[in-house]
Design a binder for these strands. Structure first.
Length: 427
RNA sequence: GUGGCCGUAGCUCAACAGGUAGAGCACCGGAUUGUGACUCCGGAGGUAGCGGGUUCAAGACCCGUCGGCCACCCCA
């Protein structure tokens, strides 16, 4: 019988890695909290129409990357490929948009892509969305919040902030027309993928990795020249605010977004330390989306960070915390010893809940239990044997003593267990 | 969807002009009756991803298939 394995691109996150994940999640939640953002929890499955309407029908995500299926009722459902659509849907449906909202969410997203480094089919994003504020101080806040997070995680010096404004929908439409017109007479100079994109999503040609295509674009129209006055002024103000806050950035006039709903400010935090998938966090303004999904027109801006990519970065740069060590391992040989040890350990956990205490299970000789104690990585072994049971005492043995103080071991009365253990751990 | 590399014990990997597989780590047991790590001794564990083909003989060669990694693409 063949082994049942996980679905391709949907990975297990193993015990050795969860400490890093928890550290990352805690850090993010703390920073977001300090900026006054509230968590919102959203379904993993939404109606397919939500994503078609928000992300855009002709995007790669909607065309070939969504996990879409009919439920038992025959309605089309989709595992969320990103979080903004669901968050906007909830904000509208639950009537949250009467006042400005600062929200965040976290969880798995699903896209049917070919897995590679920093890219899987089930991946995790933490998203931040702000509703109801149209001015660029909000854009600055969002970016600043990210910068603070990178600083706390020790990742500032490997992150670069790329910034652009893609203007209003009208400006973009005009630019798009100009770009297509320019490129159409130079089709044969473009790489194959860009030729295809000329008909599907011409703006994406801007971030082609092909050198010759980039050379052709150098001669073409610039998005900057098509920006409406408001977008231009907002962008200038955003730059000003970022400078005032001491955030470094690079203006990249060819930075665009893969999803249709963005306008004005777009940004990406990228790193060179992750191989091809260097975008760690990306976002932008989407002032039209709420109305597009049936809500009252509400300006909004948001971004999402790729958790797997951040975890990879933390690990590669040695910023990932080690898994917490076991403090004490309880060795108990014999039936009576086990009873006494169990009781004392429970009491100890109640007194010192922050300690990580493993009670040996599975029987075995004294020697084998000691081996397990050592392998567990515990700093101290708490030993109950016949002698201890008879004397109502316990042996506290330090397992990580340095050469000079090895064999450090004391047998004390049960009532002194807590203080003796704490003293041993303080070493 | 396209391309490159890869698929041998739980893990990391060997070997050999094609002749029925090996190391290190991990695991289990022992080296004085209640003391781990270091050392020594012993043990268990693989129908070589799967399916075909070539051959007297294939883990090694060929084809297919599945899976992994990386890149393209896409994107967080």
């Amino acid at each position: 019988m063949s082994e049942i394995t996980a679905i391709r691109g949907m990975n297990d996150i193993l015990p050795g890695d969860t400490a890093c994940w928890q550290y990352l999640e805690r850090s993010i939640a703390a920073v977001l909290g300090s900026y006054g953002y509230s968590e919102i929890r959203l379904p993993v499955v939404e109606k397919t129409a939500l994503f078609k309407r928000s992300i855009g029908e002709v995007t790669d995500i909607v065309e070939k990357e969504m996990y879409t299926f009919d439920d038992r009722n025959g309605d089309s459902m989709t595992l969320r490929p990103e979080g903004t659509a669901g968050c906007v849907r909830a904000a509208i449906q639950q009537g949250l948009l009467g006042t400005p909202q600062r929200l965040w969410y976290a969880g798995p997203m699903f896209r049917y892509e070919r897995p590679q480094k920093g890219r899987q089919r089930q991946f995790h994003q933490t998203g931040v969305e702000s509703f109801g504020v149209a001015t660029p101080d909000m854009d600055a806040e969002l970016i600043l919040l990210c910068a603070t997070l990178w600083r706390q995680l020790g990742l500032v010096d490997c992150m670069e902030l790329q910034l652009n404004s893609i203007g209003s929908a009208d400006a973009r439409k005009a630019y798009r027309a100009a770009l297509v017109e320019f490129l159409q007479v130079r089709v044969e100079l473009l790489d194959e993928d860009s030729q295809r994109r000329l008909h599907t999503n011409p703006l994406r040609i801007l971030d082609s990795k092909n050198a010759q295509t980039q050379a052709v674009l150098d001669e073409g129209p610039s998005l900057e020249d098509f920006l409406d006055d408001e977008a231009e002024a907002d962008f200038a103000r955003l730059c000003e605010l970022l400078q005032a806050a001491g955030v470094n950035y690079v203006v990249n006039r060819r930075l665009v977004r893969g999803l249709d709903y963005y306008n004005k400010t777009v940004f990406e935090w990228v790193t060179r330390d992750l191989g091809a998938q260097g975008t760690v966090c990306a976002g932008g303004r989407y002032d039209g989306l709420v109305a597009q999904l049936g809500g009252r027109a509400t300006p909004a801006i948001g971004c999402a960070m790729g958790m797997e990519r951040l975890v990879l970065l933390l690990m590669e740069r040695g910023e990932a915390p080690a898994a917490p060590a076991i403090d004490a391992y309880v060795v108990a040989v014999g039936s009576d010893a086990q009873c006494q040890a169990l009781r004392a350990t429970e009491e100890l956990r109640a007194q010192k809940p922050q300690l990580r205490i493993v009670q040996h299970a599975g029987g075995g000789s004294f020697k084998s239990q000691m081996k397990k104690a050592d392998k567990s990585g515990a700093r101290v072994a708490l030993i109950w044997g016949e002698d201890e049971v008879a004397a109502r005492s316990v042996t506290v043995k330090s397992l990580r003593a340095s050469e000079g103080e090895r064999a450090a071991q004391v047998t004390v009365a049960l009532r002194d267990l807590e203080t003796t253990l704490c003293a041993a751990l303080a070493h």
